[in-house]
Amino acid sequence: MNDLLEQLITPIIITAIVSGLYRYFQKKKEEYQKYVYENKQNDFQKLENFSNELIEGGEANPELKTILFKISQRINPYGREIKTFGKYQWIKDDGHIWNQLNQIEGKINSQEITIDDLKELAYRIQISKRILDVRLEQAVSPISPSKIWFYFLQYLTLVFQLFLLFSLYTIGFKSSEINESSIHLAFALWLSLMIFLIFLIPELIINESDDSKFEIFIIVYTMVFALVDAFTTYYLWNNLSSAIIVFVIILFFMITLTFLKSIIFGDSEIGKISTIYIEEYRELQESKSNKKRFKDYFRKYKFFFNKEK
Rank of each mutant, 00 (worst) to 15 (best):
T275Q: 13
Q26K: 07
I218T: 14
E286S: 15
P62G: 04
K87Q: 15
Q138L: 12
F305N: 10
N61H: 12
I276R: 12
Y22L: 12
L164E: 01
R74T: 07
F196Q: 10
M254T: 01
K288R: 10
Q100G: 07
I273A: 04
I201L: 12
G58P: 02
I264Q: 05
G57C: 05
I75D: 04
I143V: 06
Y37Q: 12
E215S: 11
I115L: 02
N99I: 00
I276K: 00
W90H: 08
E81N: 14
G57P: 01
I198R: 05
F173Q: 12
T10Q: 14
E137C: 12
M254K: 14
E308L: 03
Q161M: 01
G86S: 11
Q111W: 05
F252G: 01
I171L: 13
N39Y: 09
N306Q: 14
I127K: 00
Y88M: 14
S287W: 11
A186T: 10
T170W: 02
E31M: 10
F85G: 03
W90L: 04
D3M: 06
Q111S: 15
M194C: 06
E180S: 13
F166S: 12
N42E: 04
T232R: 02
L168W: 03
D267F: 11
G266Q: 13
W90P: 05
I67P: 11
K291V: 00
R23E: 14
E48T: 07
L168M: 04
S128P: 05
M1T: 08
K107Q: 10
L193P: 05
L158M: 09
F150H: 05
K174F: 10
A226V: 06
L162Y: 05
R135F: 08
E6W: 04
N42I: 07
G58I: 06
I108E: 10
S192G: 07
Y221T: 06
F152N: 09
F304G: 06
N207I: 08
I143P: 15
S181N: 13
I250F: 02
E48N: 00
T10N: 14
Q100I: 03
D296G: 09
V36C: 11
K34A: 01
Q161V: 08
L64N: 10
T15S: 15
K288Y: 15
L257M: 02
E48A: 03
N49E: 15
N49G: 14
V159F: 01
I12A: 15
F231I: 10
R80H: 07
S182A: 12
D94S: 09
D93M: 03
K174Q: 15
F196G: 15
E283C: 02
R23T: 08
S262K: 02
I263N: 15
K147Y: 08
R74S: 14
N99F: 06
M194S: 08
L136R: 14
L236Q: 04
I97T: 09
N2E: 08
L5Y: 09
T66L: 05
E308W: 14
F160S: 05
G106Q: 08
L227V: 12
F259P: 00
I245R: 05
A139F: 01
L54Q: 08
I263E: 13
K29W: 06
R282F: 09
E105S: 04
A139Q: 15
A60K: 13
I55A: 08
F247A: 15
I250H: 01
N99E: 03
S72N: 13
I125L: 12
S72A: 01
F231A: 14
D296R: 07
F304L: 15
I206Q: 14
R293V: 03
N42F: 13
A122N: 00
